[in-house]
Computed example of a mutant assay.
Amino acid sequence: MGGRKDLTSYAYRKRRAAFLAESDVCHLCGHPGADVVDHITPVASGADPRDTDNWAPAHGVKRCPTCGRNCNGEKGATTAAPRLNTSRDWYA
């Protein structure tokens, strides 16, 4: 099983880029433009960062161009991946 240092290896970055090239729709808000891989079961909880079955696209470094959220950052290191409210009523 890998650790956090595996998240910076060249092989990991290459697989991550290929994964995001296939789908950039954020699994949290449903909008396109995802720029990070979210680990559904967090690496901090012992998940293998190389397990692509545990990957999902999310907005992180760049905020969502549609709703302006940092979806992965708002999710944090929880074990569940909640669907964020994408309606405009959260502004009120």
Results as ranks from 00 to 15, higher is better:
residue 7 L to D: 03
residue 10 Y to G: 13
residue 63 R to D: 13
residue 27 H to R: 04
residue 92 A to L: 10
residue 4 R to V: 09
residue 32 P to W: 00
residue 83 R to K: 12
residue 27 H to G: 08
residue 7 L to E: 10
residue 39 H to L: 05
residue 91 Y to C: 12
residue 46 G to C: 02
residue 2 G to K: 02
residue 91 Y to R: 13
residue 49 P to F: 08
residue 56 A to N: 03
residue 82 P to A: 05
residue 31 H to D: 03
residue 71 C to H: 03
residue 74 E to F: 09
residue 25 V to G: 01
residue 69 R to G: 07
residue 39 H to D: 08
residue 30 G to C: 03
residue 59 H to W: 07
residue 57 P to R: 02
residue 47 A to F: 07
residue 18 A to P: 15
residue 90 W to N: 05
residue 25 V to R: 04
residue 89 D to C: 14
residue 24 D to P: 02
residue 48 D to N: 11
residue 36 V to T: 14
residue 29 C to Q: 08
residue 68 G to N: 03
residue 47 A to R: 04
residue 15 R to D: 11
residue 70 N to H: 08
residue 35 D to P: 00
residue 16 R to C: 09
residue 73 G to K: 15
residue 59 H to D: 08
residue 39 H to V: 03
residue 52 T to Q: 12
residue 71 C to T: 07
residue 21 A to M: 11
residue 76 G to D: 06
residue 20 L to V: 10
residue 50 R to G: 08
residue 55 W to C: 02
residue 4 R to W: 06
residue 1 M to N: 09
residue 41 T to V: 14
residue 14 K to R: 09
residue 68 G to E: 08
residue 13 R to N: 12
residue 91 Y to G: 12
residue 79 T to Y: 10
residue 30 G to R: 04
residue 8 T to A: 05
residue 14 K to G: 05
residue 83 R to N: 03
residue 75 K to I: 15
residue 8 T to Q: 10
residue 84 L to C: 10
residue 18 A to F: 10
residue 67 C to A: 11
residue 8 T to P: 09
residue 5 K to F: 01
residue 48 D to A: 03
residue 13 R to E: 11
residue 24 D to Q: 09
residue 61 V to C: 12
residue 26 C to V: 02
residue 48 D to Q: 06
residue 89 D to Q: 15
residue 47 A to V: 05
residue 37 V to K: 01
residue 68 G to K: 05
residue 70 N to P: 06
residue 45 S to F: 13
residue 15 R to V: 10
residue 70 N to W: 13
residue 52 T to N: 05
